[in-house]
Design a protein around this nucleic acid. Structure first.
Lengths: 183, 183
DNA sequence: GTCTATAATTCGATAGAC
DNA sequence: GTCTATCGAATTATAGAC
């Protein structure tokens, strides 16, 4: 059966995202990805060239952070909490990066860039000093990534049992303090 | 050159801890561990039987949480922050588990047990209801593990630049609220 | 576009000499 | 206790027929 190149590529990419998110870089084999996509392993190589480039394509990511200019400073914590919980629940690429950043340097580098630039830039609307904004962004990252780690990777029972609304309620004050609290 | 069995075993174990902590379970090969320890790969097998059992030995862990009975409730956040920062800086096994829990189910299971039982038990002195204590322990885990992840694994520049004292100062209020704050 | 076959590595594990 | 040699399995990657 013949299919279009674009459709095949998209199918492979979707399967790769799930595999990388579920198993991490090392355990996610090209054979497994191909199996999930009901496609021959050699097709993966044909379209992406190497496992490394397949991963790069699967881990493409933009945080799509909301515009924080103009929002009330005291609302920032909740806005960020709502945004991140929503992102984590829907975006597979975020989980891919979280899993793979542990063993794959390219993934770690990308995650550093994302949180250092995108998040610090967004917070820059609230905190004017760049160095200070970078620090605040780093603190936000520790809580946001820690929640994601415990909820999606480690799957700690008390944490997975929480509803998205509960997660937001607990996280919002923490993020608020990290962005606007005194040091 | 001949050495004692105990010394050889200890040398291998030290090398294994570093390798597992640096590379995670899959990428840390027995050959690499042996190389670090300046020892033949077959010796690793001789002493530990398999890679899985070598890992189990390297990831042995006890949080050694302080006794929280009798402490002032409002001091709990700082006590926990001080304790964890100290642990992270010295205990290699913690980093081993953090790195490997992502791809190795045995490591993830052990980490779940540690945080669910040891941490929830310690918090039980502050929060009487067991289910409530488990939830609070889970929240503490999200922040503590998130900080460790950003500082030691991801190595986010603004986070690694913080001194231990600064980390404690930022974490203490968060942990305090997670343990004793209203929901 | 799809598949078969296979090359080239790498790794965990075993056997056995010394 | 230490090492050499090697097996067997799994994986990435390539060559090429159809």
């Amino acid at each position: 059966m013949k299919r279009s190149a674009a459709a095949t590529k998209a199918t492979i990419l979707a399967a790769a995202r799930e595999r990388f998110a579920a198993d991490g870089y090392e355990r996610a084999t090209i054979r497994a990805v191909a199996g999930d996509a009901h496609i021959d392993p050699s097709m993966v190589m044909r379209y992406f060239g190497s496992k490394e480039r397949l991963f790069a394509a699967a881990a493409e990511l933009d945080l799509h952070l909301p515009d924080l200019s103009g929002v009330r400073h005291r609302s920032v914590g909740r806005i960020l909490a709502v945004h991140f919980v929503e992102r984590w629940e829907t975006d597979e690429a975020l989980k891919v990066l979280l899993r793979t950043a542990v063993t794959n340097e390219a993934a770690a580098a990308r995650m550093r860039t994302i949180f250092a630039s995108q998040l610090a830039h967004a917070i820059g609307w609230i905190v004017s000093d760049p160095a200070e904004a970078a620090l605040r962004a780093g603190l936000v990252a520790t809580q946001v990534l820690g929640m994601a780690f415990c909820r999606y990777v480690l799957q700690l029972p008390p944490v997975t049992a929480m509803t998205p609304a509960e997660v937001i309620a607990w996280l919002a004050p923490t993020l608020q303090r990290y962005v606007t609290g005194s040091r």
